[in-house]
Every structure is written in structure tokens, then in C-alpha cells.
């Protein structure tokens, strides 16, 4: 396969990413990869998956990158475009400031976006509800459907990430079927 950047050399460096359920592939020759700063990844294995994603966002989708690049963290003043260059956040509040973009990165890097491990005691204390939770009403069918869809989409991403393409195709069909159901009907 030819390199997507120069269209001349054979591509030797390949990446995959999922955007809104669609799989995109990126293929580059070594010269172009080096030119774009990928040599770091090649030589030192240092550039994280996050870095690769950021690189793709900047180089392959320049318009949208410019838009989000100007977003700034109010606490430390870091711009999103700076983060994409250095790959490090400026302060704990950056996680809030860049939340939509970071969620995509986290999903790609970890396959998940929710923490399941332990927390410092003071954070656990903060997270506890201040008033006892009211008796929860039974879930509406529509909510159940939405939740099921979210679950399936997560599984789809995981399947694609682990290159389990048959499983991915099966999940995609389930998602389509569920999406085409008229809302309100129980799934």
C-alpha cells in the first residue's frame, strides 16, 4: 500500500483509529513518518498511543484541530494545541478543560473512560452523596435502550481496538438493529 502522505513510497507504518464507530486506517512510509515526528515512536518507542492520536488529529484533520487547539485551561493557562505538542497536561484541572478531546484519547489508550480502582480517602468522601438517595423509579424502556446502545458501542470499540473484526461486525449489526427500533418499544 502506498503512503497516504506522499503517495509515492510503500507505507511501512500503520495506525488504526475509531471515530464515531467508523474505522479509519493510516498508512505512512518511514520517511514521511519521520518527517511528521514519528521517528520518536520508531526509535524510542516513547511516543505513547496518546501521542500518535494527537499527531493524527493535527496532521490529518487540520481544520478541526485548529478549532479545539485554542481551548485553554483556566487554571494553568495551557492551550489544547500546546498539549498536543508536548503530550503532557498542565494541571489536574486540564482534565476538565479538555474533557471532550481527552475522552477520545482515553478511550483509545485505555479502551475505557471510567476509573474502577481505589481513590484517596478524601476523594471517596467527596463522591458520597450528601443526602440519602431517594427510591429510584424503575428505568424507562427508552433509557434501557440507550444504555444498551452505549454498552454495545463500547464493546465495538474494544473489538476494533483488539482487531477482532468478526466480533466488531456482529456488534455493528446489533447496534444498527437497536438503532432502527422505534423508541419506546422494549428492547
Amino acid at each position: 500500500m502506498k503512503c497516504q502522505n506522499c503517495g509515492e513510497s510503500e507505507s511501512t507504518i500503520h495506525f488504526k483509529e475509531v471515530v464515531e464507530g467508523n474505522l479509519r486506517e493510516i498508512h505512512l512510509c518511514e520517511a514521511c513518518a519521520r518527517d511528521k515526528g514519528f521517528h520518536i515512536a520508531i526509535e524510542h518507542n516513547k511516543l505513547s498511543i496518546a501521542g500518535q492520536f494527537i499527531w493524527m488529529a493535527e496532521n490529518l484533520y487540520p481544520e478541526s484541530a485548529a478549532k479545539v487547539g485554542s481551548v485553554q485551561c483556566a487554571t494553568c493557562g495551557l492551550r489544547y494545541s500546546q498539549f498536543t505538542r508536548i503530550g503532557r497536561l498542565g494541571c489536574p484541572d486540564c482534565y476538565g478543560a479538555f474533557q471532550p478531546q481527552l475522552m477520545q484519547i482515553l478511550r483509545r489508550v485505555h479502551g475505557e473512560t471510567t476509573h474502577r480502582g481505589r481513590l484517596p480517602r478524601e476523594t471517596t468522601a467527596l463522591a458520597e452523596p450528601e443526602t440519602p438517595a431517594a427510591v429510584t423509579p424503575p428505568p424507562r424502556p427508552e433509557d434501557v435502550r440507550k444504555q444498551r446502545l452505549r454498552q454495545l458501542r463500547r464493546e465495538l470499540e474494544a473489538a476494533v481496538a483488539s482487531e477482532a473484526f468478526e466480533e466488531a461486525a456482529r456488534l455493528r449489526d446489533s447496534i444498527r438493529a437497536l438503532e432502527s427500533e422505534p423508541p419506546g418499544e422494549p428492547g
Binding site: 498511543i49 503532557r88 489536574p92 481527552l102 482515553l106 480502582g117 476523594t123
Partner: peptide, 27 residues
């Protein structure tokens, strides 16, 4: 350490780290 230092964390993302590749358990 936790008894003396206040560590940056949220219930949703766990321990917050400089690089998003370590966020969560930080482990």
C-alpha cells in the same frame, strides 16, 4: 503519604496524572 498530602483525583477518572496514559490507577 495520603494522610499528609492531598492527591489530585476524581471519582470518574481516578488519580490525575501529567500524561493521560497513566490516569486512573496511576499504576
Amino acid at each position: 503519604l495520603e494522610a499528609h498530602l492531598s492527591f489530585a483525583a476524581t471519582p470518574e477518572l481516578g488519580y490525575l496524572t501529567a500524561c493521560p496514559t497513566n490516569v486512573g490507577t496511576g499504576m
